[in-house]
Design a protein around this nucleic acid. Sequence first.
DNA 1: AATGAATGAGTTTTCATTCAT
DNA 2: TATGAATGAAAACTCATTCAT
Lengths: 224, 224, 224, 224
Amino acid sequence: MTKTPKRRPRNAERTRVEILQAALEEFSSMGHSGARVDRIAARAGVSKPMIYDYFGDKDAIYAEALREAYVQIRRGEEQLTLDPDDPCEAVRELVRFTMDHFRRKPWFIRILNTENLMGGETVARLHDAAEIQSVLVKRLSEVLAQGAQQGVFRRHVDPAEFYVSMASLCYFPISNMHTLRAVFRLPIDDDWLDRRALEASDMLLSYLTADTLPSERPAPPRST
Amino acid sequence: MTKTPKRRPRNAERTRVEILQAALEEFSSMGHSGARVDRIAARAGVSKPMIYDYFGDKDAIYAEALREAYVQIRRGEEQLTLDPDDPCEAVRELVRFTMDHFRRKPWFIRILNTENLMGGETVARLHDAAEIQSVLVKRLSEVLAQGAQQGVFRRHVDPAEFYVSMASLCYFPISNMHTLRAVFRLPIDDDWLDRRALEASDMLLSYLTADTLPSERPAPPRST
Amino acid sequence: MTKTPKRRPRNAERTRVEILQAALEEFSSMGHSGARVDRIAARAGVSKPMIYDYFGDKDAIYAEALREAYVQIRRGEEQLTLDPDDPCEAVRELVRFTMDHFRRKPWFIRILNTENLMGGETVARLHDAAEIQSVLVKRLSEVLAQGAQQGVFRRHVDPAEFYVSMASLCYFPISNMHTLRAVFRLPIDDDWLDRRALEASDMLLSYLTADTLPSERPAPPRST
Amino acid sequence: MTKTPKRRPRNAERTRVEILQAALEEFSSMGHSGARVDRIAARAGVSKPMIYDYFGDKDAIYAEALREAYVQIRRGEEQLTLDPDDPCEAVRELVRFTMDHFRRKPWFIRILNTENLMGGETVARLHDAAEIQSVLVKRLSEVLAQGAQQGVFRRHVDPAEFYVSMASLCYFPISNMHTLRAVFRLPIDDDWLDRRALEASDMLLSYLTADTLPSERPAPPRST
DNA sequence: AATGAATGAGTTTTCATTCAT
DNA sequence: TATGAATGAAAACTCATTCAT
């Protein structure tokens, strides 16, 4: 007869990590108010008091979970390698990576939505928030420079602004999948998202490779 | 001696509308779980039991508030007129309108986020959800057809898919303004959003007016 | 078959008073930390949320209970009448009254002890604390003046200081009855307290009627 | 490689004493329910399980802390020497000593209050409680006898009862200092307590040296 | 012998919902 | 019709106590 141990073994670091991932999932699937400390404890296989021991209170766990979401995406971005000789392909790769990360780690989008719903008070207090996505923007910056130098891309495209456009096109179809499905009857699944990634790339590259921007062209002659 | 009635009799329809708007604001600013029936009552200037009389329970109010958000945007869209002779300008106008609606009625974006966070169960049950944005898609459809006929736009662009791209570019900078501000230190204000609208138009029109899509072009010769 | 009403009838004022007395008893018998909101609710025959509705939180109930204790003793003091022609008897009456109030309303002493254990933060914030025992001190003041005028009492006895002495002699035997019983094996009961009241009166009157105070007398000649 | 022991071995007796003093301070400043085992451990510089090893459970620590309070006061009383030839001065010295002990070891008064709030169950079970203050009562007894023999004090004064009066006058101004300050605006500080000690002595000596007690004197003629 | 880690059993507090007038 | 008063059920948080190393 084997003794089933009633307590989990003493392992502070492991416990901390498990609580954090559990919290990330709970907060991102239920929102801040909807999240339940009991469920975080259950998901993490830990008793409730542990959570308070490790983190303090619900808001503090939330803040740590939010930071964890950023840390995870940064880890992904750091592994990204881009071909410096083919800026167009590099842009495609960036789009694929972004769409993929949003898709594979659904809690990232969800906890960002939660945070924005709450007015961003917590992210404003994450002291290292700014560094977090710096990796991606730096990569993007290099790609844009490379493309411009090769004469393939227009010049003077701001990397952060361009990142916002790219992120927009990847974020919205995923974050709003449920309402889009209901309202437009769109067939939202992995294939559809792949096609969205392709379309996003096309759109971004059309913009980057256009000789002149539409807003700078002369008004076309009206058809009479 | 006449009894002064404490309960001012109210116009039933007006009361309903006031509760609905209060609910919309409460749900969109606090999320579904974060919303408080007390606060909805207070915002609407009504007693709590009234709310239960008119709507049933919290979920029912939520569902009605969500529908109300869609109804409001449809009302806006119906007033939109587009110049049939200038498809480019029409696209610009659509972008401006969309960005503006998202900006002026912040609860629309916020309640959509809330609904998507919750998995879209409620919107799936709104029986007329599909009709709701039909107006806009129909307008868009006409614009795309017109542009194609004039030889200005590429052919075979799906209006719903194109709408998703347009909405993405308008939605994300607003819905995620707080995290963007914290992470990228972007100067998010009305001017910035106006510039985003311009950039979105340029991007969309580059895509629509491109002779060939980047993904269909032959791979560029590598720099040696 | 009579319907047992499951809810108490709607009567805000009565409910408030009942919660208050229940709180006074609970806090005074269990101390601040030992008091349980559940028990206050049960004693008052009310559900827990009512308590929070009426008072706010545990500390707020405590503060109101403390004030109530003072209000109750003031009500007693206001009914006290003293014979102006017989200052000695008046002092005896005051002692009897004080001892009696302390004995009959045990929560008064107990909540004062609780409050002093906690450092008096709450009483310091009761804005009308100072007026509360003013009645008794004023009565006492008149009695001392009367006695001085009749040549029975010494002059220049400060009424507040004298009150402290009187209260000391009445308070301690009651507040510390349990430890006194255990340590001195004293037969503490109503009779004993009556004798204490008599002894207190004798002591106070000896002091008031002494021609000279012991501390002002010449040192007695040492016995050789 | 030698393991540096994190657990410094400690002198068992010293550890016990430190825990005890920490417990005494914690219980007397927070009350029985308000006391926290964590804080006792922290104050004592010891881990929580240590406390359970040494004492058993919270109630057991409380009981030991209460006994410790009595033990400490007894230690003080044993050092007290009184001039047998000057009973008045001896009484004064007793009062000064008592007031001083109450003032210098504030936890004594506070833990007695706590114990009395709890109904004295613990002190009733301290098997040597009765001996504890025997020293003081014995000294007092000798002083009273001496005074009576010298013809300075009345006879037949019960030492325990007299002790209660003396203790009352010293205890209450200290134990209730916070409420007295708030209610009577008394300037409670060391000087004030010194004056209280003097007044207490005067009162007690007036009583002891009075030829007849007020309660045994004929009623004074009424003023007409 | 000593303690960091863990938890069961509460305790305070909140909130959607309903009754009684 | 309208609402102040009331509550059951659940949530966040605490704390004495014990296990495992």
